[in-house]
Structures are given as C-alpha cells and as structure tokens.
Design a protein around this nucleic acid. Structure first.
Lengths: 300, 300
DNA sequence: CAGCGCCTGTGAGTTAAAATCACAGTATGA
DNA sequence: TCATACTGTGATTTTAACTCACAGGCGCTG
C-alpha cells in the first residue's frame, strides 16, 4: 500500500513545473492561475518542501522541485499512456522485423509497446542481427539498417538521422553549467568501451583536443553510460536522436548543440513485394512517425 | 500535455484491483465501501469499459481491468516512491563500486536511483569489469562478484542467490496457461545468444527434453529477451531474483516454480580496512536489504 | 520617474467532487 | 431457511477545487 500526495495537486504541479509558469499551466489546464497557485501551495505544505523558488512574482523550479518532477512525470506519463491506449484499440497481423542489436535496444524496444498498443493484434517478431541484408538466412518483413546500402529487390527509406552530442542530466548542468566545450573540464565524462574514440573525436572537432575532465567513468556498454548520465553521474557522448525520449522527459539535456558529428542514418528496408502489405506499411509509417517526433496515429 | 483519468478514482481503483475487493480497499483507504463502489463506477463510465466483472455482489478483475492495472500501477508506484524519497533525505560521501557488467545492468543500475535518493550526497562511481578482484588495476570500495571466491584481505558476504526459471508476462499466461513444462509447447520461447543452452538445460531437468515450442525468438542480448518477455512476446528463461522487480510490478510472472536451476550467488566484497566506513556499510546494508526484498531504511 | 504588462499570492465565496449513511440485492455456507 | 459477507445506490453531508477580485512585485518603455 502506497501513500500518495494529493493527486490533483500533483497533476497541476507537473504542468506548472514543466512550463515553469503558473499562468501557462492554468491556460493549459483550463483553470485560473489562482487555482494553480493554491494547489502548488497545498502540495508544498503537504510535502514540507519548496518546489519552486519565487522571485518578484515569478517562479523557477527549485532543485528539489526538479528532482521530484523528473520522477513523478514518469509516473504520470505511464498513467496517461495506459489510459489513452485503453481508449483506442486496433487489429492486424504477424510481422517480422530484423534490426541491428543496438538500434533494437536503444530505440525500437523502448517504443515497441507503443506500436503494440496501437496495433495490439500485430504479432511482432523481433530478430536482431548485424549481418548484411543479403546474407540473412531468416525471412523478414522489414529490416532496419544504417544506410546507405546496396539492397537489390528491396525498397528502402531513411527515417532516422543519427549524430553525436554530449548528453547529461539537467540537474548536473545546474551545478556546473556548460556554455562551451572547455567547461566539460569540470565534469565527469562517461565512456563506453564500445565507442572508445568517440569523446576524443568530438573534443577534437570542438577545438579542445587536450581537455582534461574532472574525472572519468567507464562502462563496458553504452547503455550503462547512458543510464549513468541520466542518474547525474556525468556527461555522455550519445547518439541523437536516440536519446530524444530521455531529453523530452527532461532526464537528459544537450548542453552544447555543436559540433554535430554525423553518423549514418537508419533506414527501413522491405522486400518490394511486401510494400503493399498494410501491416508492413503501418509499421514503416509508424517508424517514420516516431522518428519525426509525432504521435502514433489513432487508426491504421 | 496529457489527459489523465480522474486521479482520485484511479488511486482507489488500484487498491480495489490489487485486493480484488471493494470492502478491503475501503478498509485500506479508510473510506466506506460505498465510496469505493462509486469511484469505480465513475472511472468505468469515464473510460467506457468494464474494469471488473461482477457476479452476485462479488468483483473479479476483467481482462481489460487487469491490463490497465498493470500499467497504471507502475505509474502510481513511481509517484509514491518519488514522494517517499522526497520525505526522507540524507547525506554521505564518495563510493566506488566495481561490478560485473551483467549484474550492474540488470540489478544494480535499475536500483541505483533508489540508493541515490536515499543517500543523495553519496557520489557513486560504478566501474564494470569481469576481472578477478585480485587483478583489478583501479581501486574500489566495494566489488560485486559471484561467489564463492578467493579474496584475501577482503571481507565478503553473499547477498543475492541466483537461479533460473521461466518468466513471461501475466497477460500471455492468461491467453495460454502453463500448468506444466509441457504447456510451453504452445508458447514462443525467447532465446538469448549469451545463454544458448539455458533453455535446453532447463527443459531437460523439467523432463521434456524434446519439447517443440510454438515458435522461437532470438536476441543477441539477454536484456532484450527480458524486455520482450515483459512485452508479452514469449517466455524467457531468466535469472531469479534479478527479475524480481518486474515480477513485483506484475510485468512478469513465473508460471512454473520448478525445476530451479541454481547459479552462483552474488557477493559484495570489501577491503577489510573499509568495512567500518559508514558509507561502505550503508551500501552493503542497502544491497542486502534490496536483495532481501525490504524497503530502504529511512535513515543511515 | 510613472505607467503598463505580466506574473504570482490570497481571502471570501461558489461550485463540484468525495464521502457517508441507510437501505437494498445477491451469493454462499451452515 | 437464516446469517454472513459482499457490492449497489439515492439522498444528504462534508470536503476539496475553483472562481473572483483585489493586491504586490518585477521588468520594460517612454
């Protein structure tokens, strides 16, 4: 059995904190700013902490408030998603997707429940492989590979560009702001063994090839480093926009927007004969829609 | 911006669904059963679905209700956890933990925010390595390895037994129940390349060495297979109790409780000289507490 | 400097939601 | 059959959410 804060106040807090504005939250929620002010005050008194710093009739999220937001926002998102999925079911068929392991892990699987809930009757089979498409020994409806590629007999389309940028948690950034690449010297840089030269390459392009970070932390897997970044342990050099979700959730941020180190784009690749299949095109369309940052269409 | 169901009704739904009893929920929430009945009815009308099947003044969670519960329960848990952690802060110091990559990924990192929120001023450094402790070239406060081991000059204690059992999502189990190992023939078995013989070994010990599953799905990484199991794609043979969280959350369940295939237990290993350090002992105690399924103690 | 626009804060009052109470209906077990 | 345990519901009460109107603070502009 759990103890919950006043949930209505929490809902309003999430909006006010996200927008860092009581009046904007009031507009979004179709209530008065006075109601927002009171609910926030009620929540602060209930919790016994200041969630916002107030200066001259303006609010700014406090450290405590930010930390709380990050966590409760995930919870509220889960509730909202569960609710919207319950309100819009749908039906299709079996689909075999062959993806590179990295893409499957970092981008596709976290979104797979989204596809599944939008198309609950599609039986999806995800096979991972790094092999060239021509050398796959299992059939697939759709393959996902980095392009450009030589894929005769197939239709291919790029749907997700990839590039690398430093990523860290917003809380870390508040403690030690990063306005230029040289500021990274005050931070822990998170390294993944699978990308040993990524940081050096980026720092060189950023004009600080000899930069000494405050400390380093090494992981043998990139996903661990990414998780550590989200936990505020340091700055990771991550593939964009694969970390887009975490950025959108405020768990990560990009302190510096350049230099952008481009990497090859991801393409979906489907046999020509399969392109008219509604399930295949639904999945491809869904991939594109997700990559474009749009929401899943409500009906196929 | 999200659309939320009536949140108070949702809170009450979670309790009623978990307990599958309106009066038990009323008792837990210190309200009348009538209030529970009305809130459930209100939520059902708002969603337009039946969350409970009612027979002769008794309620049983409907399929829809169960699916909704699983998802919103996660959301509500996050909110409750965030709230309780905000209500009990504390302070310590820097800690270097050296863990095997598998353990770090599947057990430690998912819990690390828990430790961090309980001890927000401990600066934790997680280094992953499979090397023997005697051959590590970086210092550590605590190492985590499978025991038993030869660790002179160190104090070691096992805190987490490991064994293997089939794991799948409860929804999958409802569609095709698994009462005996032979029933797995109707399911998709999820394989991870890192544990190629795990299923064969288990099925042999279960007395069905020649079992043919309905289908198979292969992942190059175990964590992908585990995620797929949670998404209802099939049955994975997973390390217990590393999957305990997901089981506790209702995202996974163990359809069969035997045969239990034991694997070596995890131990924390600390230099003798460090054992009196309050941060070290706090972390070790936290490990043990987590492994024992208890909640984090409120104060160090 | 004054005026304006935009923002948050708050007491009094209104409205809506939550909860209680008492009665009712159903299933199960003795 | 009766007793018990459970959920359902209308009328009423209680509580929370919200509005409204006024107030104060900050930044910008003339």
């Amino acid at each position: 059995m759990n103890t919950y804060p006043p949930l209505n106040a929490l809902r309003i807090f999430e909006a006010a904190a996200r927008l860092e504005s009581f009046s904007a939250a009031a507009n979004e929620l179709f209530i008065t700013h006075g109601a927002v002010s009171k609910q926030i005050k009620q929540l602060e008194e209930w919790l016994g902490v200041k969630l916002f710093d107030r200066t001259g009739g303006r609010v700014k999220l406090s450290d405590t408030g930010w930390r709380y937001l990050i966590q409760v926002q995930d919870g509220l998102d889960l509730i909202a998603n569960a609710t919207s999925q319950l309100l819009q079911p749908d039906r299709l068929r079996r689909l075999t997707v062959n993806s590179t392991p990295t893409f499957a892990r970092h981008w596709l699987l976290p979104r797979l429940t989204q596809f599944r809930d939008a198309y609950p009757d599609v039986e999806l089979h995800l096979v991972t492989s790094d092999r060239d498409i021509g050398r796959l020994d299992t059939p697939f409806d759709i393959a996902i590979r980095r392009g450009p590629g030589d894929w005769p007999g197939h239709i291919a389309k790029p749907f997700l560009e990839e590039w690398e940028l430093p990523l860290c948690s917003p809380a870390l950034l508040e403690r030690a702001p990063v306005a230029s690449p040289a500021d990274l010297a005050r931070h822990t840089l998170l390294y993944a063994d699978t990308r040993p030269t990524a940081w050096q390459r980026w720092l060189t392009l950023a004009g600080v090839p000899d930069l000494k970070p405050a400390s380093t932390l090494h992981f043998d897997r990139f996903s661990l480093a990414l998780e550590a970044a989200m936990d505020g342990l340091g700055v990771v050099l991550g593939p964009m926009p694969m970390a887009q979700d975490e950025i959108a959730r405020g768990r990560l941020t990009t302190p510096l927007s350049s230099p952008i180190v481009p990497v090859r784009a991801y393409c979906w690749v489907a046999p020509r004969t399969a392109v008219d299949d509604p399930t295949v095109s639904a999945f491809c369309h869904w991939l594109e829609t997700c990559a474009a940052g749009l929401s899943v269409p409500p009906t196929a």
